Amino acid sequence: MAKQTQTFEGLVMSRQNYRESDMLVKILTDQFGKKMFLLNRARKPGFALAAGILPFTHADYIGEVRESGLSYLSAIKNVTQYRQISNDITLNAYAAYIFGLLDLAYPDGQPVGFWFNQIKQALHLIDTGLDPQIIANVIEVQMLKAYGVEPNWRGCVIDGRTDLPLDFSESYGGLLCQRHWDKDPHRLHASPRAIFYLRRFSTLDLSQVKHINVKPATKAELKRVLDIIYTDMVGVTPKAKRFIDQMNQWQDRLPDAHKPSDSQSNNEHRE
């Protein structure tokens, strides 16, 4: 079937101007994966569907979904915008990074299954004030499988033990218990707390998360470990990740008086 009119749930990933007054809008759909929609005259004042095509918007859409090429929208209802994300440059960057991870992992038009609801929940949690880095870290850990990298987070890859300290080994593609640390002198030397969270993140349903409170030192360690895994084992870096790193570097240069305090940071995962 070349085309079909469908009602579907969607999340606006990005948009760009097209021709004189039109717009291209990329939407993550619950049924068809990522699709690019052409909206004629979308940049004209009074465009009827304007509220439903803003970045970081969740809505129900009605339109012509084509297997290849551009698709088209005819109606939008039940529009909800993630306003805090839209108005905060840091939250915006983390939400864009989450979309970027999925965008690079899945080709357009391929259904993403579980990921639609997981990403919708991730945006909801970020929008309601939960720590955006930790939410992005959960997505990073779980998205590894989509990139063909599926570390063993269950226990030691050699003997399955979980009762000894564990560390991550790129060479072995997962965790090594202390008995086998000598087998990989280049293991990541991750802290026990970071390993605890990485194991939890690998199976975490974000719909069950109510609070996040992770100490800054643990957050820094999680970032270090996941950056190494993505650089060495995945090899992709969404544009938003570079922006986040630049923001972090800028914040590190601020005098302590201008940095957010621990009480201002919704930072150890609690359920």
Score class of each variant (00 low, 15 high):
208 Q>P: 06
199 R>E: 10
4 Q>R: 15
257 A>D: 13
120 K>H: 15
65 V>S: 01
2 A>K: 13
137 N>L: 01
193 R>Y: 08
25 V>F: 00
267 N>L: 10
172 Y>T: 04
150 E>K: 13
258 H>I: 05
117 N>R: 13
116 F>H: 06
9 E>D: 13
230 Y>S: 04
9 E>L: 12
154 R>V: 14
261 S>T: 14
117 N>A: 12
239 K>M: 12
62 I>M: 09
211 H>G: 05
30 D>M: 03
190 A>V: 02
130 L>R: 04
117 N>H: 14
94 Y>F: 14
78 N>K: 14
168 F>W: 06
46 G>K: 08
210 K>Q: 15
194 A>P: 01
47 F>K: 02
183 K>N: 05
269 H>W: 08
36 M>Q: 02
155 G>S: 09
231 T>V: 12
49 L>N: 04
180 H>G: 00
38 L>N: 01
218 T>E: 12
152 N>G: 04
1 M>F: 11
171 S>G: 12
263 S>V: 09
160 G>W: 11
42 A>N: 02
182 D>K: 10
89 I>E: 06
217 A>I: 12
153 W>M: 03
222 L>P: 00
23 M>A: 10
139 I>T: 04
263 S>Y: 08
34 K>R: 11
195 I>A: 03
32 F>W: 05
14 S>P: 06
72 Y>W: 06
88 D>L: 06
207 S>G: 11
68 S>W: 06
133 Q>L: 07
31 Q>K: 15
94 Y>M: 03
132 P>I: 07
113 G>V: 04
178 Q>P: 11
4 Q>E: 13
109 G>D: 05
73 L>R: 00
116 F>W: 06
23 M>E: 07
149 V>C: 09
13 M>P: 01
84 Q>K: 13
93 A>C: 09
239 K>P: 00
249 Q>A: 14
84 Q>Y: 05
42 A>L: 05
120 K>I: 01
267 N>D: 11
228 I>M: 10
145 K>A: 14
92 N>Q: 11
269 H>R: 07
187 R>H: 13
20 E>T: 06
246 Q>C: 10
213 N>C: 14
185 P>N: 10
267 N>F: 07
96 A>Y: 01
232 D>I: 08
23 M>L: 13
68 S>M: 09
111 P>R: 07
70 L>R: 10
244 I>D: 08
195 I>G: 02
72 Y>E: 04
26 K>S: 10
97 Y>I: 03
101 L>F: 08
158 I>T: 11
45 P>G: 07
104 L>W: 08
36 M>N: 09
196 F>V: 04
178 Q>F: 06
106 Y>G: 05
46 G>E: 09
95 A>R: 02
52 G>E: 02
256 D>R: 00
164 L>M: 12
128 T>Y: 11
237 T>W: 02
241 K>Q: 10
145 K>M: 05
193 R>S: 12
17 N>S: 15
223 K>P: 00
26 K>Y: 03
82 Y>P: 03
183 K>C: 01
222 L>S: 03
269 H>E: 08
207 S>D: 13
228 I>T: 13
86 S>L: 11
144 L>Q: 07
210 K>S: 14
162 T>N: 13
232 D>K: 14
214 V>F: 03
146 A>Y: 03
31 Q>Y: 07
56 F>I: 01
94 Y>T: 02
207 S>K: 14
164 L>Q: 08
